[in-house]
Write a protein that binds this DNA or RNA. Sequence first.
DNA 1: GCTTGTAACTGCCGCAGCGGCAGCTTCTAC
DNA 2: GTAGAAGCTGCCGCTGCGGCAGTTACAAGC
Lengths: 243, 243
Amino acid sequence: MSGLTARTLRHYDEIGLLPPARIGSNGHRYYEERQLLQLQQILVLRALGVGLTEIARILGDQVDELEALRDHQHRLLAERDRLDTLAATVSRTIADLERSRKDGTPMTSINRPENLFEGIQPADVEESLRDFPEHAEAARRATAAMSQAEIEAGQRERTARMVHLAELMAAGHPADAEAVQSHIDAEYQALTALRTVSVEEYRAIARSCTENPQWSAAYEAIAPGLAAYQRAAMEAYAAARPA
Amino acid sequence: MSGLTARTLRHYDEIGLLPPARIGSNGHRYYEERQLLQLQQILVLRALGVGLTEIARILGDQVDELEALRDHQHRLLAERDRLDTLAATVSRTIADLERSRKDGTPMTSINRPENLFEGIQPADVEESLRDFPEHAEAARRATAAMSQAEIEAGQRERTARMVHLAELMAAGHPADAEAVQSHIDAEYQALTALRTVSVEEYRAIARSCTENPQWSAAYEAIAPGLAAYQRAAMEAYAAARPA
DNA sequence: GCTTGTAACTGCCGCAGCGGCAGCTTCTAC
DNA sequence: GTAGAAGCTGCCGCTGCGGCAGTTACAAGC
């Protein structure tokens, strides 16, 4: 009658959502009017996308249906918004791919992850910084004082800066262009805020951009050639600043 | 480095999405730069919501990434729209519940399933019509000539008519009100189009609305009291028509 | 060389909501 | 009496891993 398969009804019995009125000595499940009515309620809630466990809560424990529905709607809207922004991101990615394909600039596409370093823990960073022990120490002390949220914010900021540099590169600016150099200067200021850096050290860091596979991979994940671009920009910066 | 757990990497190996560069004699998985780069691609696609099997197809079989992304976007938008209409439906349901709660008309809520009879096959209908053998036969012959789509359209129409009657009831019209009687008249015309019906038979059908548990359940699923309302309306119709 | 702590491994259960199958029993109809 | 339909139990499958148990391997300190 309800259009549900027997398998589904058995499932609803298994999870206790809709036990039959009685079970014959032959094991057959017999349903009566009361179950039909409850099933209709179940179907309505299910059609609204409410989960079966939630439906069981509402029908069983007499949880307030209205409140449950409002909760459910919030989840629906949140999920819809998530898909919406996701679709927008996909749309931009498609546009980027199309443009780069048409321009013949085959691979200037820029990936825009929210947080490239998501999940990379300070310990991993130290690992990557082993070529620069003093900086590793300074970085460790700095992160130790930060909350998890602050750390993540910093990671997102670094990712965003890398994306910004990729945009400058995609726009065709040479590594020693004014816009690029001011970007690098901001990075340099942030770096020296942690600890003073000699020119020699700075050049070594620049080389690491392409030579340290982990750093390089991170840059290349944003845009192909970005690691070399960052290195060139840093070297240009170092050359222009005898200090 | 990537922030993925070891468990996840093992999973990706299991499903063949990202096999390690080599597996040592000790069973350990070793990854190299190439895998890191591929992993970055995987993460980007995953962040876009592409499924793992789809990602494997794109990276493995060199399926056109652009086309795959467009497909994926269609799915995203379709899902978003589905959630959107779902949220709107939930919103209406919430409003209905709130109104009926405020008015003190405690349970005049009307369920509006798209097709209450979805999945009910003609055989089931015959079952319900066993009290009226000639009509069962007539109904069988009529449905035998119809396509599946026509049958479903008819079911949706009947559901819609029941919802309409529920609205008349909720609006407070007595069973013998003009609007209700003209609704019943339309039903009567549709019924007699199949086969002539005596007044006796018609009264018997009216009684079935509340006495046949299956019919009753269907009415009650739309709105409480609807079965009795339909019966009363039909009896009033029969009384007003001595023919 | 031995121990200890850490980390890697395999393999299984769990999640939502059933679909689908195998293999068995029961009902219904001729 | 018998055939066919329909009911039953129980297990695997899907997605994308998380979590646990039990085992082995490696790095570091004594």
